[in-house]
Amino acid sequence: MKYLRNLLLVAALVSGQGAYAQDMPQIRAATLKIGTVNWELSTIKAQGFDHANGFELVMQPYADNGATRVAFEGGRADLIVADWIWTARQRSAGRDYVFLPYSKAVGGLVVPADSTAQSLADLAGGKIGIAGGPLDKSWLILRAYAASEYGLDLTEQTEQVFAAPPLIYKTGLGGETQGSVNYWHYLSRMKAEGMRELISVSDAAQSLGLNPDTPLLGYVLRESFVADNPGVLQALHDASRAAKDLLASDDAVWDDLRPMMRVGSDAEFIATRDDFRAGIPPDKPVDREDADRFLQLMARLGGEKLVGKATTLPDGLFAQVD
């Protein structure tokens, strides 16, 4: 019903309510130029889900994530995409940031197709390529899982090569590393090219007693912006869910997105699309107990360098929407 309501509202706007559109509040979204969130945001724009929910989405692409955060912190943008651990750290430091879930897509560890490895224990003595650095949350979860399941200290018993996602992709496919930990969309492409998933971060997290349905990535806004624009948080949520529903059910919508997906084959396209769909979180509030367990693990493994002063879950971190 919500999707039908949105379509009717779009039709009304197109038929002549231009003055209303001009009065809409804007949400300026600072995003990574090649980021996967652009697939959802572009769908919101193309389908008119922003206008249907009473706001105008303005997309502001930047070259790197650091630039998006500078724009957000400097007031040149109203929204960025980040994980809630980072958002909790900022909130604990006194910033009025709130988190609206966007995706639960996480990566995993893949090995070459001809690898004999059947578990993380088989990578002892080998080389692992890792995107995101030593504090990458997927890497931390895999470290905790290896220690719990096999008594294996991955930092001590493997050689780690930290590099940008494209390089991890290249070296993994080239067989230069025995295992690869990469961002989810690169892993989709690696699996489509024949690499085999040894362990997913979701499975590792579940084994550690964490809830894999807890969304890690989300839209981050300032409470002051939300207060100045009543209803904008709910409107963003509804537009996001409308786009997710469409992306989850309509293959044709993906044809328009394919150029920005940077895939090299039909197999990569299908794998990336399907993994995006698998990463759509349930439309329900984040469970605080689940989130707190995750935060405690990140604090234990990453320390203050990762979580800052956020040793407990800050009140008001997760946006309240219907």
Rank of each mutant, 00 (worst) to 15 (best):
G179M: 00
P259W: 05
D228H: 13
E176A: 06
V201I: 06
H185K: 04
T214S: 08
D203W: 13
G231E: 07
D250K: 11
T171V: 14
D213Q: 15
E223M: 01
P259V: 02
A235T: 05
G264T: 05
S207C: 08
E197R: 14
D266Q: 11
P212L: 08
R258S: 05
L236V: 12
S207M: 11
S188R: 03
G175T: 00
Y186N: 03
P212V: 00
A235K: 06
G194D: 06
T177F: 15
I199Q: 15
S202D: 15
A252E: 06
L257Q: 07
E223Q: 08
S249P: 09
N182M: 01
L208Q: 01
W184D: 11
V220R: 08
V220E: 06
F225Q: 10
P212S: 10
K191F: 11
K170A: 05
E193P: 05
G175F: 02
V253M: 09
S265L: 07
M260P: 01
S207E: 11
K191I: 15
R222Q: 04
R189M: 15
L233V: 10
G264V: 10
D203V: 12
A242G: 04
L210E: 09
M195S: 04
A192M: 05
Q234D: 11
V226W: 02
D245I: 15
V181W: 02
V232I: 14
V253L: 11
D213F: 14
W254F: 02
P259Q: 00
L198F: 07
G209L: 03
L217E: 12
R262T: 11
E268H: 11
L198N: 03
A248P: 04
D250M: 11
A192W: 10
P215E: 10
L216W: 12
V181G: 00
L210A: 07
A242E: 02
S180I: 00
L257K: 08
D251N: 14
R196K: 12
L217S: 13
V226A: 07
L208V: 02
A267M: 06
R258W: 12
S249C: 08
S224E: 12
R196S: 08
S200V: 06
M195F: 03
